[in-house]
Structure formats: C-alpha cells, structure tokens
C-alpha cells in the first residue's frame, strides 16, 4: 500500500508515493536519488545518514518518510545549491578534513546545525556535537580544525 506524500527537500517540494514503513533515508536515496546521504548502519549508531530537519541534525535512518512531511529537510546536496560552496564545505577541503569521504556529509551537516546556532562554538562543543558521526579514517582532528575555521568565516555573517 503506497501513500502519496509531500516532502520539502533542499527547498524543493517533492510529491511522491512511499510505503508507510519506508525511512526518510530510503526515500532520499532511492526515490529522490540524493545519495550524498549515506547508510552506515541503519540503526542510528553511526551518523553517516545525518540530515537536517528544520535545522536540527537527525539520523535519516531512524525517521519515517511520512513523518518528515511539513518539515524543511536539508541534505548535503542542499548546501551548495546557491552556486558556491558553503563555508563548511570549503573549510573541509582546505583543512584536509576529508579522507574516504563516506562520513563527510554527516559531519558537515552536523557541524552546520551547530554553527548556525553558535558560530563561535569552541573545540569541546564541536567534539560533543559531532561525536554522533563516526569516522573510521580518523579525520576527527582535521574536522575540528575545519569547523573552527568555518565558524570564523560564518561569524562574518555568511
């Protein structure tokens, strides 16, 4: 039994049919082809599927697509949709915060949720907030540097 739903993803309204049990992650990846949102575990343990729901970080594997209606959903693909890179994306490249890249979208979105509220967030706050995203390459030290650098840029009112 499919249900017609409407999702606002990256400021674009999408109308689509989903199974009631489908997660937001499945719908983003399979129906909307937004594969920048990754699946690392499907259980909410790894954070690679992090998206923003009304600006707050959420593991998309733990949310039903149905429940994501009437919210603003932001995926990694929505960060540079005005042309240029988001300061976080640029900082991740510049600071060498990317290795295999599989956790990178989750890291960047998690950091965006933090910096949007507090661009002055310090190292400890960054660590605490981003600890929900696991990275086996161990890019953590350079991710922290990247987020600090992006915060500096965003304080300037980006």
């Amino acid at each position: 039994m499919k249900i017609l739903i409407e999702l606002t993803v990256n400021e674009e309204l999408c109308r689509l049919e989903v199974e009631p049990q489908q997660t937001l992650l499945e719908v983003l990846r399979e129906a909307l082809h937004l594969t920048g949102t990754k699946e690392g575990c499907g259980l909410g343990d790894c954070g690679t599927c992090m998206v923003l729901i009304d600006g707050k970080p959420v593991n998309a594997c733990l949310m039903l697509a149905l429940d994501a209606q009437r919210h603003q959903i932001t995926t990694i693909e929505g960060l540079d949709n005005r042309g240029g890179l988001h300061p976080l994306q640029q900082s991740f490249i510049d600071a060498g915060a990317v290795q295999c890249g599989f956790c990178t979208p989750g890291m960047i979105l998690s950091a965006k949720a933090l910096l949007d509220i507090n661009p002055r967030a310090g190292k400890e706050e960054i660590k605490k907030t981003l600890s929900g995203v696991l990275c086996r390459c161990g890019s953590y030290p350079k991710v922290i540097e990247a987020v600090l650098a992006a915060g500096e840029k965003m304080k300037g009112g980006h």
């Binding site: 693909e77 991740f92 490249i93 990317v98 890249g101 990178t104």
Partner: peptide
C-alpha cells in the same frame, strides 16, 4: 588539497 575533495564535500562522490 585533495582532488576528490569537492566531490566528497558535496555528496556527489
């Protein structure tokens, strides 16, 4: 900066 950086920070990799 790594050549694959842009694809990876945009989720396009």
């Amino acid at each position: 900066p790594r050549l694959d950086g842009l694809e990876k920070v945009t989720g396009r990799a």
